[in-house]
């Protein structure tokens, strides 16, 4: 199979948006589900959350950060290219219902998966308070979109270039200590951020969900590579998750498992960069870096 790329642009440095033609996937998608894609025959299968979908247009939008070989290569593709594989929707949809007040926390590229949740919770009649964070102002994504789908929006930057100078957890803490009853918190972002949120909510009695992003292969429950420990029980994040109760997640284990292939990942990037230099000579025409 091949899948057409309908749209593709760099939102902020190293973070890209790509819209893919996949009508059957779009039709079946619900909030918090993800896809797995493979660029070409030699490519790796990588999971990315569905940031948006349009049933009428038959399209699915993903937002990704350049990390290693696959995402760097993906970043170079244009609407003239195609993807060989695009499987989804995968994972359990979030249980979206009318609860009252929902706090959505997105860090870095984690704002992307928060966005469809904001839409869905809003539609179900909830009050949505969003906290979106980035290292710096120029790395902040989807601010306008989040504003249209939230009742309140807080922005945090690590360097103080916009909004609150500090971390998303500072705002979570303030809200929890405030008067407003919070019925659910959903936090998605880098594992360190999710772990920090889990730490902040610990003393409070508020349901808190995180969306885990372990290394995956098939995404259908077949390999067990994505296993995580939740309250001492082993779960497969791709079929039992990706959302889990933040306070039960063994973050240390998950983070260590994410690092398993660090040396192979650098080797893959080196190989990719040397290979494309040799192919194109990296002249003016080169689009590979």
């Amino acid at each position: 199979m091949t899948y057409n790329i309908l749209e593709k642009y760099e939102m902020v440095p190293t973070v890209h948006l790509m819209k893919i033609q996949a009508p059957d996937v779009a039709k079946a998608t619900k909030a918090s589900q993800f896809i797995i894609l493979r660029i070409d025959e030699t490519g790796e299968r990588i999971p990315l959350t569905i940031a948006d979908f349009d049933v009428v247009e038959g399209s699915v939008t993903i937002i990704f950060q350049e990390m290693g070989k696959t995402t760097k290569y993906l970043a170079k593709l244009t609407t003239d290219d195609t993807l060989q594989d695009f499987v989804g929707p995968l994972g359990c949809p979030s249980e979206i219902e009318k609860l009252g007040t929902i706090v959505l926390v997105g860090g870095g590229v984690g704002v992307a998966p928060i966005y469809p949740q904001a839409k869905a919770y809003r539609k179900a009649g909830n009050k949505v308070i969003s906290i979106i964070g980035a290292r710096s102002k120029n790395l902040l994504i989807l601010e306008d979109e989040m504003r249209t789908q939230s009742d309140e929006v807080y922005i945090t930057t690590d360097d103080g270039s916009k909004g609150h100078h500090g971390f998303v957890t500072d705002i979570v803490q303030n809200l929890l200590e405030g008067d407003e009853v919070i019925n659910r918190i959903v936090a998605i972002g880098p594992p360190v951020m999710m772990r920090a949120v889990a730490g902040v909510v610990e003393p409070f009695d508020v349901e808190t969900l995180v969306s885990l992003n372990p290394i995956m292969v098939d995404g259908t429950g077949m390999c067990g590579g994505c296993r995580v420990s939740i309250g001492g029980e082993t779960k497969f994040a791709c079929v039992d998750g990706p959302e889990f109760d933040a306070r039960k997640v063994d973050f240390n284990l998950m983070m260590s498992r994410l690092g398993l292939y660090r040396s192979e990942e650098s080797e893959a990037v080196e190989h990719y960069e040397s290979e494309c230099k040799s192919k194109t000579g990296c002249g003016d025409e080169c689009t590979c870096h």
């Binding site: 390999c223 067990g224 192979e264 190989h271």
Partner: peptide, 21 residues
């Protein structure tokens, strides 16, 4: 299953020509 899938389906024995380690 994971080990064999990486090796057979994803051709990890040909890493880094194939991307999956």
């Amino acid at each position: 299953n994971e080990f064999l899938t990486r090796v057979n389906l994803m051709k990890a024995y040909q890493f880094p020509e194939y991307d999956t380690p």
